[in-house]
Write a protein that binds this DNA or RNA. Structure first.
Lengths: 140, 140
DNA sequence: TATTGTTATACTCTATAACTATA
DNA sequence: TATAGTTATAGAGTATAACAATA
C-alpha cells in the first residue's frame, strides 16, 4: 500500500518529476540539434572515453544486445563510429568514435547546460547540501 | 563554449543524471509490472484526474496529436480508457479512464516508491532545503 | 557447451502530411 | 478558413528467438 505523504514531500516528489522531465527534454533537444536521437547521443557519449564492446553498451543502456547493432549501424553510416576487432577475443567487436564522432560528443557535452547553469547560482554550501541530499536519495 | 566546472558541481550534475536515470528505470518497471508502456502509463496518470481532450494530451506529452490516437487506441482496446464526445464542441474527443483504468492508475501511483521512500529518511528541514534548491534549479 | 554479435520479426513510439468532420 | 482528430507512412527503439563465429 502507498504511504501517506505530507504536503512538503508531495511537493518535493513533484519537483523531482519536473527536474527529470526538464532534463530529458534538454537532452533530446541537444541531441536533435546534432541530428541525433537520444539513444545515439547516449551511446556516443559512452564511447567518447574509450572503445566499448557491443555487449557492454547494451548493459550500460539496459537494453538487449540486438538493439545495439542497429544504433551502432546508424552511427557508423554517418561516419561517427567504427567497429574494431578486439585483439583479445575475436568474438568481440569494439565500437570506437571517429575523429568526427569525438568532436560531436564534445559538442553534445557543451550543449547540456541545463544542470550546470542553474547550479552556478547556488553557493558552495548549498551545492554541498544538495549533493549530500541527492547521495542519500540514491542510497550512496 | 562550455563553462569550466569545479569538482563539486561536476559531482552534483552527475548525481542529478543518476536520479534521472533511476527515476526512469523505476517508472518503466512500474509500468511494465502492469503490462503498460511508459507512454501508456503517463497518459493513464494524466486522465486519472479528469477527462482530457486528445489535443491536450499531446501538449502534455510534448508529442504530435497523431501519436495520441494510437496510444489511446491501445488503452481503449484493453478496456482502461474510453473516448467520450465533448458536449461543448463536437470536434473534440475526451479520453476518460474506465473503472478498471482508474484502479490501474492508482496501482501505478502506489508502485512509484522511488522518490517517496528515500525522502522519508530526510528531516523536515532537509526536505525544505531540497525543495528550495530544486525550485531554484527549475527557475520557479 | 557457452558466449558474442548479428539477423529476422513484431510491436510501440515518433514526426510528417493528407484527410474528415466540425467550428 | 481554421481547428480537432484520424489515417497513412516511414524511421527509430525495443524484446524475443534463432543463427554463425569463436571461446
Amino acid at each position: 500500500m502507498a504511504m501517506r505523504m505530507d504536503p512538503l514531500t508531495v511537493e518535493v516528489v513533484e519537483l523531482i518529476g519536473s527536474v527529470v522531465a526538464r532534463y530529458h527534454e534538454e537532452y533530446e533537444r541537444a541531441a536533435a540539434e546534432h541530428a541525433l536521437t537520444g539513444a545515439q547521443a547516449r551511446v556516443l557519449g559512452l564511447l567518447s572515453l574509450e572503445p566499448v564492446a557491443m555487449r557492454k553498451i547494451a548493459r550500460k543502456l539496459k537494453c538487449e544486445p540486438s538493439n545495439v547493432t542497429g544504433i551502432i549501424d546508424r552511427l557508423e553510416a554517418r561516419g561517427l563510429v567504427e567497429r574494431r576487432p578486439d585483439p583479445a577475443d575475436r568474438r568481440v567487436k569494439l565500437a570506437a568514435p571517429t575523429e568526427e564522432g569525438r568532436r560531436m560528443a564534445a559538442a553534445l557535452r557543451d550543449s547540456l547546460d541545463f544542470a550546470r547553469e542553474p547550479l552556478a547560482e547556488l553557493s558552495s554550501e548549498e551545492r554541498t547540501v544538495l549533493r549530500d541530499l541527492l547521495r542519500r536519495m540514491l542510497g550512496q
